[in-house]
């Protein structure tokens, strides 16, 4: 009977394990192998080159800048998305009139595809805001935010916040609603004012929601691609280490351009492996730090 059960288990597991092997595990190791070759994406004669691609990418100014820009974007974006999302979550769980309408409305931008959204916001930044600036006589609006190399990261972050804050808000809302009302009422009875209740009761009680939201925004920011492509395409240009490079070409886009636009697939793959390692390390640290702050009921 036991052997029979094992066969049934294997049979039921087979589709999932097979798919996991073929779609995740095998490509992952093939990818690591390809990162140590000279493959251009077409030529069948692949030559093994060892770690040469890795030493090349560490010396490339455009990759280093891309790394810095992505890190800066992640820092700004994680802070902005979570601050806005948490604020909205507090708003839509308060007794404000029409909170269900708000809840739906804030979530809607998340349903628009990133490519479409990027082009719409490009139009807003490049045409609508400068036109408003001209007619109202406001100087700071007249130059496009995404045409300036030192502000473009903030521009992308604003758009990403607009898109993503509603989704993160939903997780915070669930976290807030899971807190027993009796706790907050007891604190109120004891004379704790709203800020105290917020910081001492509400936020510690929903620490697991923070863990999830920080993780999601961190990974999402690091892997930013669609809005990056359609909103800025990596531009505008700037100078870094005496070379002209694109100021908002984040890692995912840089990897794509290396692999496909410049036909250096193996080098792009080496960047992707490095990207993977960094992402795993950063997110593990984040989850570990956040987990220590969670409280058990």
């Amino acid at each position: 009977m036991r052997t029979k059960n094992r066969w049934v288990n294997v049979l039921f597991l087979f589709p999932a394990v097979f798919a996991f092997l073929m779609v995740i595990v095998v490509p992952f190791f093939v990818g690591i192998y390809l990162s140590m070759t000279n493959w251009d994406g077409v030529n069948p004669n692949v030559i093994f080159t060892g770690l040469q691609n890795y030493t090349t990418i560490f010396q490339a100014p455009e990759f280093l800048y891309s790394f810095l820009a992505t890190t800066a974007f992640t820092a700004i974006n994680v802070a902005l998305v979570n601050a806005v999302a948490f604020g909205l979550a507090l708003l839509v769980t308060s007794r404000v009139r029409g909170r269900n309408v708000y809840r739906a409305a804030f979530f809607v931008p998340n349903l628009i595809g990133g490519i479409v959204l990027g082009y719409i916001w490009q139009f807003i930044f490049n045409n609508v805001l400068p036109a408003m600036g001209r007619s109202l006589g406001l100087g700071f609006l007249q130059t496009s935010l995404i045409a300036k190399a030192n502000l473009v990261v903030l521009g992308i972050s604003l758009v990403n916040t607009w898109q993503y804050a509603g989704y993160i808000m939903m997780i915070y809302v669930a976290g807030i609603q899971a807190i027993p009302a009796s706790l907050m009422e007891a604190a109120e009875t004891d004379g704790a004012n709203y800020p105290t209740r917020l910081v001492r009761i509400l936020m510690p009680m929903m620490a697991s929601a923070f863990t999830i939201c920080l993780f999601l925004t961190l990974v999402n920011s690091f892997k930013q691609f669609d809005v990056n492509v359609s909103l800025t395409n990596g531009g505008p240009a700037t100078i870094f280490m005496m070379k002209a490079i694109n100021s908002s070409e984040f890692l995912a886009l840089n990897i794509y351009n290396t692999a496909f636009a410049r036909s250096k697939l193996a080098q792009g793959q080496a960047k992707a492996v490095l990207f993977f390692v960094v992402l795993v390390v950063v997110s593990l640290i984040q989850v570990w730090v956040n987990k220590r702050k969670e409280v058990e009921m």
Binding site: A149, G235, P236, A237, T238, I239, A244, I245, N246
Partner: peptide
């Protein structure tokens, strides 16, 4: 391309 843009925007 980026080098042309730097000349265009006066950098």
């Amino acid at each position: 391309g980026p080098i042309y843009e730097l000349l265009a925007n006066g950098t």
